[in-house]
Nucleic acid binder design. Structure first.
Lengths: 193, 193
DNA sequence: CGTGGAGTTGAATACGATCAACACCGGTGG
DNA sequence: CCACCGGTGTTGATCGTATTCAACTCCACG
């Protein structure tokens, strides 16, 4: 479990064994089963999650009781409510497990420690944030300009492996269409596509 | 022009006159008229913008030739293509002037210098980024769960002054509805609302 | 004046949502 | 081992909301 995360860090920035040792106290392995909730809406988040195995997701529930999925986090992805974590504000969404999942719970203090120990990491974390911002912008644009079918095709292209392992209704929720509509979109694509 | 920006910085973090003097070389005042383009799509952005007077916007043009507005930046707001600016990647969108606008063109090097001179600024800039991320998440959620009318009402609530000064078709583009639909939404609200 | 862009209104259309019924599969307990 | 059950996905029919296309008004600006 630790190995995965260390390999991830090494792939992003040069880090020594000694540096790894110094940041290790700031994260802990956790395992949860499908459906378990890690972070509730309005709760203050105490840690970020780095997924080692399985898949987590963040989502909201609207006033009509419908779930809307904001993000999926499969292996080697981060998921967190950063504003809640850093500013100790109430979380804007839920985080739970789509599958049985092993992840690292990464303390609030981890990031400060990482920046102390490996100054170059600051740029890396910053870029992660920017790319996250960019992906939300892209997704917004796809809602402003594309049909459900186009968004589904884009999803297949950018997350081919997720498309296979996730239940269809979750993909529908992520895309912003009903499960029925997604079913019809797939039927359509299967026939004349 | 410089005064506005200095006042803005002081409102966010404590800075001395000396510190201000040290970062001043890294930004320049600019004035452009309505409709002028500051950043083209696919171009590499060389600076961020801090709006002193007027209003800028970022937008994309889809394959059907339609504009979709990503962000407005009135007085005291930032607008930039951060990924392009920092990573020297092609810009994902255009930035132009909605009105005649005075702004500060803030060099790529500004931020490194600011962080050197005022270390506390790093947290401040980071929070700005996080709140920007959060606002995109909120907007995405509003597209997943709310109607055009609801999004318009939310826009009125969060940007009351913008709603008055912007042409309706731009608000429509920002909300992701056609100008005709927005016109009807307003009519509806005016009568029985 | 005259021209063009912005906003409004109407009618027809298209797309996705809703409601409802059913098939299929996987797991549980008798 | 089989019967049952709930959840997931499919399909059909209907409905509603927003888009499209078109015509017209109004106003700002040359």
């Amino acid at each position: 479990m630790f190995k995965t995360f260390e390999a991830y860090l090494r792939s992003k920035i040069p880090v020594t064994d000694e540096q790894l040792r110094q940041i290790e106290p700031f994260y802990k392995p956790r395992s949860i089963s499908k459906g378990q909730i890690i972070l509730y809406i309005n709760e203050v988040s105490e840690h970020a999650c780095f997924v080692v195995n399985g898949c987590l997701r963040s989502y909201v529930i609207d006033e009509k009781g419908k779930e809307h999925i904001i993000q999926f986090a499969p292996e080697n992805w981060w998921i967190s409510e950063q504003v809640s974590l850093i500013d100790r504000e109430p979380s804007m969404y839920f985080i739970d497990a789509v599958e049985d999942t092993a992840y690292l719970a990464i303390d609030r203090a981890f990031f400060a420690q990482l920046h102390n120990v490996v100054p170059a990491a600051r740029e890396m974390m910053n870029m992660l944030q920017l790319y996250s911002l960019r992906s939300f912008q892209k997704r917004l644009i796809s809602h402003l300009s594309a049909s459900g079918e186009e968004r589904y095709l884009a999803f297949l292209k950018t997350h081919p492996s997720l498309a296979l392992r996730l239940p269809q209704k979750m993909i529908a929720s992520y895309l912003g269409v009903t499960p029925e509509s997604l079913s019809r979109i797939r039927k359509e694509l299967a026939s004349h596509g």
